[in-house]
Deep mutational scan, measured.
Amino acid sequence: TETRTFDSEEEAKKAQKEAEKQGRTVTITRRDDRWEVRFD
């Protein structure tokens, strides 16, 4: 599991799309003013 933090939802969604192309499961969580993206 890898976790990355982004400043914008746009960036988080971009990372999510990339990871899903690779067949990974992605979870996006809102953390205050940041977006946390978890790759499984």
Score class of each variant (00 low, 15 high):
T1S: 13
T1I: 13
T1R: 10
T1N: 11
T1E: 11
T1F: 15
E2N: 10
E2V: 13
E2I: 13
E2R: 08
E2G: 09
E2M: 11
E2S: 10
E2A: 10
E2W: 15
E2P: 08
T3Y: 14
T3F: 13
T3G: 04
T3V: 15
T3S: 08
T3P: 07
T3K: 06
R4F: 14
R4K: 12
R4H: 11
R4Q: 12
R4I: 14
R4Y: 14
T5W: 15
T5Y: 15
T5P: 02
T5V: 15
T5G: 04
T5M: 15
T5D: 05
F6Q: 00
F6W: 02
F6E: 01
F6V: 03
F6A: 01
D7Y: 14
D7R: 09
D7M: 12
D7A: 12
D7K: 09
D7W: 13
S8P: 00
S8M: 03
S8Q: 03
S8K: 05
S8Y: 03
E9M: 08
E9V: 06
E9F: 15
E9P: 04
E9K: 04
E10G: 05
E10H: 07
E10V: 09
E10D: 09
E10T: 06
E10K: 07
E11K: 06
E11M: 07
E11T: 03
E11G: 07
A12T: 02
A12Q: 00
A12N: 00
A12F: 02
A12H: 00
A12V: 04
A12G: 01
A12M: 03
K13G: 04
K13Y: 12
K13A: 06
K13S: 06
K13Q: 10
K13C: 08
K14V: 11
K14W: 11
K14D: 11
K14C: 12
K14G: 06
K14M: 12
A15T: 04
A15H: 08
A15S: 05
A15I: 07
A15P: 00
A15F: 15
Q16L: 10
Q16W: 07
Q16F: 11
Q16E: 06
Q16R: 08
Q16P: 00
Q16H: 05
Q16N: 02
Q16A: 15
K17P: 00
K17D: 11
K17Q: 13
K17F: 12
E18M: 08
E18V: 08
E18R: 06
E18A: 10
E18Y: 07
A19Y: 14
A19T: 02
A19N: 03
A19E: 05
A19G: 09
A19L: 15
A19S: 04
A19K: 02
A19I: 06
E20R: 07
E20N: 06
K21M: 12
K21A: 15
K21D: 14
K21V: 07
K21E: 15
K21T: 09
Q22C: 13
Q22I: 11
Q22H: 12
Q22Y: 12
Q22R: 10
Q22N: 13
Q22K: 08
G23W: 04
G23E: 02
G23C: 09
G23I: 01
G23Q: 03
G23D: 03
G23Y: 04
G23R: 02
R24F: 15
R24E: 05
R24N: 07
R24H: 14
R24I: 15
R24G: 06
R24L: 15
R24P: 02
R24W: 15
T25F: 12
T25W: 10
T25I: 12
T25Y: 12
T25N: 10
T25Q: 11
V26Y: 02
V26K: 00
V26Q: 01
V26R: 00
V26C: 13
V26N: 02
V26D: 01
V26S: 12
T27A: 05
T27E: 06
T27P: 01
T27K: 07
T27M: 06
I28A: 02
I28M: 05
I28L: 06
I28W: 00
I28E: 00
I28D: 00
I28K: 01
I28Y: 02
T29E: 09
T29K: 07
T29H: 11
T29D: 04
T29R: 08
T29L: 10
T29F: 10
R30K: 15
R30I: 10
R30E: 07
R31V: 15
R31Q: 09
R31T: 09
R31L: 14
R31G: 03
R31W: 07
R31D: 04
R31P: 02
D32F: 08
D32V: 05
D32T: 04
D32P: 03
D32L: 07
D33G: 15
D33N: 13
D33C: 10
R34I: 14
R34N: 05
R34T: 11
R34A: 08
R34Q: 11
R34S: 08
W35N: 00
W35A: 00
W35M: 00
W35I: 02
W35S: 00
E36H: 05
E36Q: 05
E36L: 07
E36F: 08
E36I: 14
E36M: 06
V37C: 03
V37H: 00
V37L: 13
V37A: 03
V37W: 00
V37Y: 01
R38Y: 08
R38G: 04
R38S: 11
R38A: 10
R38V: 12
F39P: 05
F39S: 05
F39T: 06
F39E: 05
F39A: 05
D40N: 11
D40L: 12
D40S: 13
D40A: 10
D40K: 06
D40W: 13
